[in-house]
Design a protein around this nucleic acid. Structure first.
Lengths: 199, 199
DNA sequence: ACCTGAACACCGTTCAAGT
DNA sequence: ACCTGAACACCGTTCAAGT
């Protein structure tokens, strides 16, 4: 059921319609002509609001990653927040990955990871944050593609549960390992990390 | 300069031409019509060898990942070998990532990582291998896109050296962290679960 | 076994012209 | 400020027909 707006549109409206359509049809079928159709408008009309499809996709990627988690969360929670933001829209991870080639060091996601790592007392927080982001993007892209493939592919038994659970374990293991062991407790002047003496 | 073969082609020849063309024009411009043109053939001729473009791309991805490193290498060497295989062709990482949604647990890359992890004495080698592969794919995709973006984008000074070097550090840090600390040396005999009593 | 020729239903993008 | 209409140079895929 199309939108049928008799009003004219602005940049925000176009982006919102495109995001809705992305969730319906997926990235491969998200054409300028389809977006125009959803807005009851000629394809050429979109080029008043965006210079190119690439620019429109970049806007969508920015909107997807704009939903960033609490600023005071720990590393695992922050990483999960990023992953879940990518999961909010169909093919969100692939879209962000395709788009985030530029501006590698400045994304809000990487910033959030970096400060969480600093609170955690990890060494080399900049590079660790980058590695963590690369892992999350790769992982989320693969998981999302697999979900899509399973949904209309040959489903053998009910292995879906096991697969999803297994992938969640892979995610937690990856994030935990990449967060790193905090540096020696007595070296951290400002934020004394809890010592593990409960064994 | 096109190929100009007057002979007919087989599946292997089509795949090789496509791989060559991929390196020249990149994934976005790798159309069936262009591949056909490189072979001096009508586009429809390709459909005798491959059922769809998707199937052809999957074949290319398989060929890219078929170059796997020595079977007895350590984890870092194995991971670097996978990354370098992805770097062999333009957009190789993106292509493999797009294609490897299916058959997640059976790739030769993951198998190589898993046995390297076992030799390293890491715990939970299956999930670690998966996490490692996700990281390598995400990292390589981002690096490769950035290389492409830099090559015809706004280059500020000579920051390319620093960027590449920084990304290499991120890669090594990520792989090392994901490889995990080996379990205590004297516990590794058969497989008795290690008790952590070294604190 | 391998390819041509023609067709079908699509693409992104540009640009004069309308309101 | 926002859109139409028409055009241009492309896509992937199918299918009868050729050799």
């Amino acid at each position: 059921m199309p939108e049928h707006n008799s009003t004219r549109h602005d940049r925000d409206g176009v982006a919102r319609a495109a995001l809705l359509l992305l969730d319906e049809v997926g990235l491969a079928d998200l054409s300028m002509r389809r977006i125009a159709g959803a807005l009851d408008v000629q394809p050429s009309a979109l080029y008043w609001h965006f210079a190119s499809k690439q620019e429109l996709l970049a806007e969508l990627a920015d909107r997807i990653t704009a939903t960033m988690p609490r600023a005071d969360a720990d590393v695992l929670t922050t990483a999960r927040g990023i992953r879940d933001a990518l999961f909010t829209y169909r093919d969100g991870a692939e879209l962000v990955l395709s788009t985030s080639a530029l501006r590698l060091g400045s994304s809000p996601a990487q910033t959030a990871l970096e400060s969480a790592l600093r609170r955690h007392g990890a060494d080399d927080p900049e590079n660790r944050a980058a590695a963590l982001l690369h892992f999350v993007l790769g992982h989320a892209t693969l998981v999302q593609q697999r979900m899509h493939a399973d949904s209309h592919g040959a489903t053998i038994g009910d292995g879906v549960h096991d697969i999803t659970a297994g992938l969640d374990r892979v995610f937690d293991l990856g994030v935990t390992a990449l967060a790193g062991t905090p540096v020696a407790d007595d070296e951290v002047s400002e934020l004394p990390t809890p010592r593990r003496d409960r064994a």
